[in-house]
């Protein structure tokens, strides 16, 4: 039977852990609120962008642009994996890493280059001896559009230079506070634009362009890539905070339960000790 002092010590230890998990939960909740606002603010832009791109694609020959060029060989792929910089957020990082790792292992014959965003993913793939082509860590504290621009630049460079035939994004999508979903999305070549849906009553009328349509198209496509990446980064950041919040909430609950059980046990032990002492005293008195 453990001694009273040991039990007290354990309870105290759990209590201090609980304090930490509670604090982390509160912090994650407030960060989540901000991240959620940002992702909700970013979605309309991405949508509008796609609409404009679609209406433009109907009028310009899309095969002309290198970012749209489909390659026959889909062998060499660049996989951009977005994880968090910190842990303690449940299965958030391990889900992503497992999924991305599976893709890499599955296609051992293909050459897969890894572009890693977030410290956790980088550490994992480095430790396991994967070939890391590009990494970007420590950005989630202050996520800016510039980060997406930088990422888009290197991805486009690699794609147009022919080192990779396709670029994929792997990230956690923020579905709701309780739900994150790992998604794999093709970034390049840009997914065949959907021309059927909603082309306004003026579809027949040709647009005026200022400057020439080809030039606008050339500007618009890289922007589109940037926006896609930016959205993925924001999704991931919101999902990370949501995952951490749920994980810390569960941890706080578990520790509360543990404290309760241990306290009960401790009381039993204490009573047993008292009873024993009384019996000893009484039997001592009787013996006299």
């Amino acid at each position: 039977m453990p001694s009273l002092i040991d039990l007290r010590r354990r309870i105290r230890a759990i209590k201090s852990t609980q304090q930490i998990t509670r604090a982390m939960k509160t912090v994650a909740a407030s960060k989540l609120r901000r991240a959620q606002e940002r992702i909700l603010g970013a979605r309309p832009f991405a949508q509008r962008m796609l609409q404009v791109l679609n209406s433009l694609a109907a009028r310009v020959d899309p095969s002309a642009h290198p970012l749209l060029a489909q390659r026959r060989e889909q062998g060499r792929v660049l996989l951009i994996v977005i994880t968090a910089d910190r842990g303690l957020c449940g299965s958030f990082n391990s889900n992503i890493v497992r999924r991305a790792g599976a893709v890499v292992v599955e296609s051992a014959d293909r050459q897969i280059a890894l572009g890693l965003v977030g410290r956790k993913g980088r550490d994992y793939f480095r430790r396991h001896g994967f070939d890391v082509w590009y990494e970007l860590v420590g950005i989630f504290n202050q996520l800016r559009y510039g980060h997406a621009q930088e990422l888009a630049r290197v991805a486009i460079e690699r794609f147009t230079s022919g080192d990779s035939d396709a670029v994929y994004l792997v990230y956690n999508e923020f579905k709701s506070v309780l739900q994150q979903r790992v998604v794999i999305e093709r970034l390049l070549p840009i997914v065949k634009l959907d021309l059927g849906e909603e082309t306004a009553p003026s579809a027949g009328v040709d647009y005026l362009y200022e400057p020439a349509p080809e030039q606008i198209f050339k500007e618009l496509l890289p922007r589109h890539v940037e926006v896609q990446i930016y959205r993925a980064l924001l999704e991931s950041s919101a999902a990370e905070h949501a995952a951490r919040m749920t994980a810390m909430d569960a941890a706080s609950k578990n520790s509360a339960e543990m404290i309760e059980q241990l306290t009960l046990y401790m009381n039993k032990v204490r009573q047993a000790a008292i009873t024993r002492e009384i019996i000893e005293v009484i039997s001592g008195a009787e013996a006299l």
Binding site: S55, V205, Y207, L208, Y209, E210, P211, P213, E219
Partner: peptide
């Protein structure tokens, strides 16, 4: 403020795409 100068838009404007 378009790439080739400022332009005004009133309802019924011709479809236009500008930088």
């Amino acid at each position: 403020p378009g790439a080739d100068g400022y332009f005004g838009v009133l309802p019924g404007h011709t479809p236009l795409l500008a930088m």
